[in-house]
């Protein structure tokens, strides 16, 4: 890394640690993911007795403990959006780009710092969600040494990190926190689920970032699973979305007036 890039990374770290939104978005992501995961794990344990044989075979204790991520990821999305788009809503972008006129260096230093922080938080959250969830599941619990479980737990951390990066790319393209959240929130919370649950659109839906990416957290595949990609393939699809979003964000930043 060149001298200049090191300086910019240090500057972006100061920026990210000196605003309150970093703490509360990341904090909320951890708390929601863990709490909701434990709750759903506990409910699943009670429900297990009433399940029929087929459902019991498909029961995935690892994936169940990650149930809180569906909501926790929204806080990570807010984190990613605010890191980038707050530069625009506050007017700071003009000060920032006057200090760092190489826009690629500026954007990718910012994304690198936020990604590293998101990775640490996501990994800790994913492992904690797994162990706390398994504790709630009692005799149904999976062990970290079981086949595919460690991959799923590490994958959970990578999934949340990549979703955060995706939202940073989208925010860099849209340049507004409200617009970015107004599109990303319903997209991840509603549209993706709706597309995934209707037969006609299911095949399209599973190529969306969250559905493809979350495949890596499954240890026991669902019944009649005909997904055309495996766990790492799914994460790869999410990574492609991330690359596309960041590239789009970079091009917008490069071309447009600040």
């Amino acid at each position: 890394m060149s001298m200049a890039a090191t300086q910019v990374v240090r500057s972006e770290w100061t920026k990210i640690r000196s605003v309150a939104s970093t703490v509360w978005t990341l904090g909320l992501a951890v708390v929601v993911t863990l709490a909701l995961g434990m709750l759903i794990a506990a409910l699943s344990k009670n429900e297990y007795d009433t399940m029929d044989e087929r459902d019991r075979l498909a029961f995935d204790p690892t994936f169940t403990s990650f149930a809180g991520m569906s909501l926790g990821q929204l806080a990570m999305i807010v984190f990613g959006v605010l890191v980038v788009a707050n530069e625009y809503s506050s007017g700071m972008i003009r000060t920032s780009l006057a200090a760092v006129p190489r826009r690629g260096t500026f954007l990718f230093s910012k994304v690198a710092v936020a990604t590293l922080l998101a990775l640490v938080v996501s990994m800790v959250t994913s492992f904690a969600a797994f162990f706390l969830g398994q504790a709630m599941l009692g005799h149904l619990k999976a062990s970290i040494g079981d086949a595919g479980v460690l991959r799923a737990v590490i994958g959970g951390g990578l999934y949340m990190t990549l979703i955060t990066m995706f939202s940073m790319g989208v925010a860099a393209m849209l340049r507004s926190p409200m617009l970015s959240l107004g599109i990303l929130m319903p997209f991840f919370f509603l549209i993706s689920n709706i597309l995934g649950s209707v037969d006609a659109t299911e095949k399209v839906g599973r190529f969306l970032p969250d559905q493809a990416g979350s495949k890596i957290m499954q240890v026991v595949p669902p019944l009649d699973d005909d997904t055309p990609y495996g766990p790492w393939g799914g994460l790869g699809i999410l990574a492609l979305w991330v690359v596309a979003a960041l590239l789009g964000g970079y091009l917008v930043l490069k071309r447009r007036d600040a």
């Binding site: 920026k15 506050s90 700071m92 000060t95």
Partner: peptide
Amino acid sequence: LDAKAMHGG
């Protein structure tokens, strides 16, 4: 440039 070109938080 302008006094508000900074993050208020």
